[in-house]
Nucleic acid binder design. Structure first.
Length: 161
DNA sequence: GCCAACGTTGGC
DNA sequence: GCCAACGTTGGC
């Protein structure tokens, strides 16, 4: 039975995808904290703006790479604020339709990143009897910010560290 | 690089 | 409101 985002809400646990060439967990560790700019999908926007709160835990996922998977954890350290890259004409995330008076795009800030000893790969997740129910393991699920069950968060952390 | 799956856009 | 065309995501 395919599951959808709402089956996992409300939650305090998340998975956030990033292409490591653009922004990796090492970048976040080095920078201490950073805002999650560039999300241009309404469902992901809604989750960040309306659901993610300070203290929520995040699985940091590397996508579009040789071995996609969860590479560590982070914590939401600041709730969503308007994504200023939307009105920066020089940014690749520029969006002429986003009005600074009524922002379309929002971003949370992550910090407290910790890298796993072992990547928990997408293949690992798909093979695991329970984790294979995670949204990230489902065919065609492209959402870059996904809610996660508390038990699945714990299981991934125990596999990774 | 391929391509399936999905989201968005725009004509009607 | 429908849906075809297009663009993007992201695994493989």
């Amino acid at each position: 039975m395919p599951k959808s985002v709402k089956d996992y809400l409300p939650t305090e646990f998340w998975l956030m995808k990033s292409e490591p060439d653009a922004f990796s967990i090492d970048d976040l560790i080095r920078m201490k904290s950073e805002h999650w700019d560039g999300v241009r999908n309404y469902q992901a926007r809604n989750l960040m703006r309306d659901q993610m709160k300070v203290g929520h835990r995040v699985l940091f996922y590397h996508s579009s790479t040789a071995v996609p998977g969860v590479v560590g954890t982070a914590t939401v350290v600041k709730e969503a604020i308007p994504d200023h890259t939307a009105w920066d004409r020089k940014s690749k995330y520029f969006d002429a339709k986003s009005d600074p008076e009524n922002p379309t795009w929002w971003m949370v800030t992550l910090g407290k990143a910790k890298k796993f000893k072992n990547i928990v790969t997408l293949a690992d997740i798909k093979e695991h009897p329970r984790l294979r129910e995670m949204l990230v393991a489902q065919k065609g699920q492209r959402l870059s910010i996904q809610p996660v069950l508390a038990d699945d968060f714990s299981e991934i952390v125990s596999l990774g560290r």
